[in-house]
């Protein structure tokens, strides 16, 4: 029996990137997130939806927000959580990535949330396990749940991303957040401008539907939203920018630039911020900043993603049985 046509367009088994998802799928996740946000406001913010399921976070790179919000999302859905962190694992004894993944899967994980410094790792991991895989950031490639929660936060403020002009400012070359956001924002109808010194632009932008500028002051007054990226010094080779101070002078959002920004513009940052580099302390507390909303929405959005992946998976199993 087939469920196509009439049923909502769910995700496939994995969420490896925004690339390959349709506008319909993105919109469905954002709609679902509204419902999960409501659960967070209940006196007991917990539903039994994923009872008996196990969500494993497998982080080979540090994280505060992504990991905590995924774990708290899993717990709000009554799933059990397993946590793996590279630092305290048998990796230091020389265990391979593949063995590590197989061990975690054999503890019964239904979803693996994977972060790794190498692009493509979640894709590889998905070939080694029967569990669903969610990409929680792979090198300079993609970070889909961050992009989704940014879209949700913008939609919450403005109702729709259609026709919005969004500037993404900073270290685009090393940013997986930028890559996922370019795809998600433009898929939902926004016009995206990338703003960075030429050395921090990706070597090839293929056919990204974006405009490019090297001077923030030229375009800042036209933006409906200004998305600042973290300067990823840990991924830099030498000589991309003269100094952080000079970068801050030309591309940082400070009090002066904040005044050039339209009065209904929004300020976003995926965190963690380098205060004094891409953003100054006074700007973080500007009423136009929705950085804290991004953090709050992270949990609801990730509840929606977990629920969709596990729910969808179950449905397809059921189909096979009926056929």
């Amino acid at each position: 029996m087939s469920l196509d046509v009439e049923t909502p367009p769910g995700l496939s088994k994995h969420l490896l990137g925004i690339e390959g998802t349709t506008r319909e799928q993105l919109e469905l996740i954002l709609e679902l997130t509204d419902r999960f946000a409501e659960i967070g406001k209940r006196p007991i913010p917990k539903v039994p939806a994923l009872r008996g399921r196990t969500v494993a976070s497998v982080f080979f790179e540090d994280s505060t927000r992504t990991r905590l919000s995924f774990e708290s999302a899993a717990r709000r859905l009554s799933a059990d959580t397993l946590t793996f962190s590279a630092g305290s694992s048998s990796l230091s004894k020389g265990e391979s990535l593949r063995d590590t993944v197989e061990v975690i899967s054999s503890y019964g994980a239904d979803v693996l949330i994977v972060r790794h410094s190498m692009a493509g790792t979640p894709q590889r991991v998905s070939e080694w396990t029967n569990a669903s895989v969610i990409n929680a950031g792979d090198g300079c490639h993609e970070h889909p749940t961050q992009a989704l929660l940014d879209c949700y936060t913008l939609k919450q403020q403005r109702g729709s991303l259609d026709g919005m002009s969004i500037g993404i400012v900073g270290d685009i070359r090393h940013s997986r957040v930028a890559r996922s956001n370019v795809l998600a924002f433009s898929s939902l109808g926004a016009k995206v401008t990338l703003i960075a010194p030429q050395t921090l632009m990706p070597p090839s932008m293929g056919n990204w539907p974006v405009e490019v500028s090297n001077v923030l002051d030229d375009v800042i007054s036209d933006l409906d939203a200004c998305y600042l990226l973290r300067m990823q010094s840990e991924r830099h080779s030498k000589g991309l920018i003269p100094s952080l101070r000079e970068y801050a002078k030309d591309f940082g959002l400070n009090g002066r630039r904040c005044e050039m920004l339209s009065k209904d513009a929004l300020i976003l940052h995926p965190g963690p911020t380098n205060q004094g580099v891409e953003i100054t302390a006074e700007v973080s507390t500007d009423p136009r900043s929705i950085i804290l909303d991004q953090v709050t929405n992270g949990v609801s959005l990730r509840m929606a993603v977990l629920f969709m992946l596990l729910g969808q998976h179950e449905t397809s199993k059921q189909d096979e049985v009926q056929e």
Partner: peptide, 10 residues
């Protein structure tokens, strides 16, 4: 759960 798809507008 999983036997019935989710209806987002509810």
């Amino acid at each position: 759960i999983g036997l019935r798809p989710v209806v987002p507008e509810a």
